[in-house]
């Protein structure tokens, strides 16, 4: 028995080490955003100057707003397009269905480097060019397959007899969709939209190839700043991004747990 206990303790210690590995760098990065020295010298002398400086950094703020805008629009578009596709896959059998489902893989499975450069080449070639519109096109394509997967998972738990019953009671196709199918799907739709938002907001590679000087997203601006030479302002904005996404995820996890407990 004591051997088993020791093993369990060892397991917990190992888990703690892995978590330390995952979190320590991010915590160090966050602490450095409060360090007076722009060269990250130790020991830390505390200041919030870099956050004040950040508020005046128009380029970073503009990039942050671009990121939010693209992520929100991507979440909406990808969720609508992906849900429609998931409904079709769930409801109907038709020739070519397997092929269409397979075609959802390339956006996920092919390295972003290749997809991103391919978009750059093609958009340039057909005269679409680079910029926010090009990034939006790319982000929606990357988020779409995830939405189909998440919504399909929710749909598979759906009892189609509910729709049948609504139809028998005289509801038209749109009424069935609005009052029966969509309410049931709602948690799946929220999850899918959050997923799409995260995919877009974190996306660096695609945006990097489709950005133009002056019009970029937060990850692209951060990367450019890192390449030019570090600055604690980058730590400050990174700390904010990490803190906000952590809060959102913890909040979502709580809501979903309450949902399942109900």
């Amino acid at each position: 028995m004591s051997g088993a206990r020791r093993l369990a303790l060892l397991g917990r210690a190992y888990l703690a080490l892995v978590l330390l590995f995952l979190y320590a760098p991010v915590i160090v990065m966050a602490l450095m955003s409060f360090n007076r020295s722009p060269f990250y010298t130790l020991p830390i002398r505390w200041t919030t100057d870099w956050y004040v400086k950040l508020a005046d950094n128009d380029a970073l703020i503009a990039a942050g707003l671009n990121s939010l805008l693209i992520a929100v629009v991507t979440a909406v578009l990808a969720t609508v397009l992906g849900t429609a596709a998931a409904l079709a896959f769930r409801r109907y059998d038709f020739p070519g269905k397997r092929l269409l489902q397979m075609l959802l893989l390339p956006p996920i499975a092919i390295p972003w480097l290749i997809v991103g450069t391919a978009m750059l080449v093609f958009f340039f070639w057909i005269g679409l060019g680079r910029g926010l519109h090009a990034m939006l096109l790319g982000h929606v394509a990357l988020a779409l397959p995830y939405v189909v997967v998440v919504v399909s998972a929710r749909l598979s738990a759906f009892n189609p007899e509910l729709e049948e019953a609504a139809r028998v009671l005289g509801a038209g196709p749109w009424q069935v969709l609005r009052h029966v199918t969509l309410p049931f799907l709602a948690p799946g739709l929220v999850a899918a939209a959050l997923f799409a938002f995260a995919v877009s907001f974190d996306q660096f590679v695609i945006s990097y190839f489709l950005a133009v000087p002056g019009v970029s997203t937060l990850p692209v601006e951060i990367y450019t700043a890192i390449r030019k030479g570090f600055t604690p302002e980058i730590n400050a904005i990174s700390t904010i991004v990490i803190a906000v996404s952590t809060l959102v995820l913890v909040g979502v996890a709580r809501v979903y747990r309450f949902g399942s407990a109900r």
């Binding site: 596709a85 409801r91 959802l104 092919i110 391919a118 978009m119 093609f122 070639w125």
Partner: peptide, 29 residues
């Protein structure tokens, strides 16, 4: 069986989007 129109409405937008952003670009490359 679904009508072609139903399928096109549900699947068309998603796959036209993927065609324009993934498959045509890869072909061009």
């Amino acid at each position: 069986r679904p009508t072609v129109r139903t399928l096109a409405t549900l699947l068309g937008p998603a796959y036209v989007w993927l065609l324009l952003t993934i498959f045509l670009p890869l072909s061009a490359m």
